[in-house]
Simulated scan of single mutants.
Amino acid sequence: MTVSRLRNIPGIGVDRMGDAADATQNRNILRLENLDTDLRPPADAIRRTHEAVDDDDANSYLPFTGQTALRRAVVARIRQSTGFDYDASSECIISAGGLAGILNVLLSILEPGDEVVLTDPTYAGLINRVLLAGGVPKFARLVPSADGWRLDVEALANAVSPRTRAFLIMSPSMPSGFVANATEWQAIADHCRRADAWLVYDAAMERILFDGRNAIHPASLPDMRERTLTVGSVSKEYRMIGWRVGWIVGPERIMNDVRLTSLSNVVCQVGIGMPGATAALTCADDGVAQCVAEWQARRDCLLHALHDLPLVRPDGGWSLLIDTTQLGLAPPDASRRLLDKGEVAATPMNGWGPQAERYLRFVFANEPIARLADIRERVRAAWGV
């Protein structure tokens, strides 16, 4: 019998699609179902990781909150985004990846039944972690438009109630590529202050922004430093998925609780991963700008090739959404046909928010433009459109 905390958690779907694509052993399949990337991590990060394997200091539980050099590098990075200084000892904790950090934060701030406002669509893993922590997800709709995705501010207001304890916002957001603009961040901050709630900012893709957009960190808004918890990682921007190194940065008044949760959960981080993460954050050229240019080129390739299909332009991140219901195809059926007839692996967005169930996701982080050249022909072979 399934325990109650798991009854409403469907998973994320990506695992099943990845397994299905792997099972074919067909290397011609376009891997658009998961967030791997073929772009390499910073060279300094790889070199330092190799060195860490032989470093006894990296083979240790201590310090439990993460290596000092890494925590100092993280708060220096956050200062660039927010303009605020954070204390590396009392306001920064290293986590075993960003999502472990998200769960630790939610376990530290939620009582059972507390409500958490998220966008719709949003990553199923965020929704699932709210549920695991005993919270109740509430959704603010994202509206597809010629200007990409925009936040429905009326839906945001309707999602807030006396039980609201936190806002869990990712920007750029997965799977949509929504990037909150200044007006939208201000609306979120206004509701956050009025509700006396926490803002948990998932900054995993903060700098993966297209068309010259600039990052806005919500802690930089008036009176938001003391109620914002920033969770980041080296997985996306730095292309270091397998290192499993993330961080939590927030005001000292809550970080002792987050520290206790972290100690009670994963205990400590990946020791040999932290020196490489430190190198990525401090090296002269982290490669982010070059990689963003490549990811934008891949996005533009898909937008051009699929322009006659009901897709929504992403303004950042690694993926875009296609509304297959407008083509008369339920996303799970569209996904099966793509894999069987078009040699494309893509994940339906069931469980990624109420509105998300209309969509199929294409990830453009792991396939070069040369491999994407025949994407329209593959889609036509699968869907007949």
Rank of each mutant, 00 (worst) to 15 (best):
V3C: 09
R5C: 12
I12Y: 07
R16P: 01
M17Y: 05
T24V: 12
Q25P: 02
L35F: 15
D36H: 09
D38C: 11
R40M: 12
P42L: 15
T49W: 06
P63F: 13
A69M: 09
V74K: 05
A76K: 02
R79I: 01
T82C: 08
F84V: 09
D87N: 14
A100Y: 13
G101D: 13
G101S: 14
L107F: 10
L110Q: 03
L110F: 13
P112A: 14
A124Q: 00
G125A: 10
S145T: 13
L151M: 01
T164G: 00
I169C: 01
W185E: 01
W185N: 02
W185M: 11
C192Y: 13
Y201Q: 04
R207P: 01
R213W: 03
R213Q: 07
A215S: 07
S220D: 09
S220E: 08
P222Q: 12
M224P: 02
V231E: 07
V234N: 01
V234G: 02
I241G: 04
G242D: 09
G246T: 11
I248D: 03
I248P: 00
M255G: 05
D257Q: 13
L263N: 09
S264M: 15
M274E: 14
T278R: 05
A284K: 14
A289S: 05
C291G: 11
P310I: 15
R313A: 08
L320Y: 08
L329D: 09
R336G: 10
R337H: 12
L338F: 14
M349V: 09
N350L: 15
A356D: 03
L360K: 07
F362Y: 15
F364D: 04
R371L: 15
A373S: 09
R378C: 10
V379G: 03
A381G: 09
V385K: 08
